[in-house]
Design a protein around this nucleic acid. Structure first.
Length: 88
DNA sequence: GACCTGACTCAAC
DNA sequence: AGTTGAGCCAGGT
């Protein structure tokens, strides 16, 4: 079951281009509630849409934050996307 | 409808 | 600069 809020969140996150990263705060702002960063993380965690690149959403500090499949996997994907580096 | 929880954020110590 | 506390939003019980 999805709510209007989640729908907005998935819609915004889905529009994130490759190599682009948005913070939970930014996504929350786009959804209409700049303070709903937690609700955004909540929605992304239960994200039913595999097309939604939830791994492109990180904390405002620049840290990855969390990931439904594991923060490690998230970091790995971001590396592949080009946001993070392999350590080089 | 109130209470609890969660991938957050900001401010203070 | 790292840890802790309080604030805020939505979903589920």
């Amino acid at each position: 079951m999805i709510t209007k809020f989640q729908e907005k969140v998935y819609n915004v996150v889905q529009k994130i281009p490759k190599g682009k990263i948005l913070s939970y705060k930014e996504v929350a702002k786009l959804t209409g509630s700049p303070r709903a960063s937690r609700a955004v993380g909540n929605a992304l965690n239960r994200n039913p849409f595999k097309e939604v690149p939830c791994h492109r959403v990180i904390k405002s500090d620049g840290t990855l934050g969390g990931y439904a499949k594991g923060a490690k996997e998230k970091a790995r994907i971001l590396k592949k996307e080009g946001y993070l580096k392999n350590g080089l």
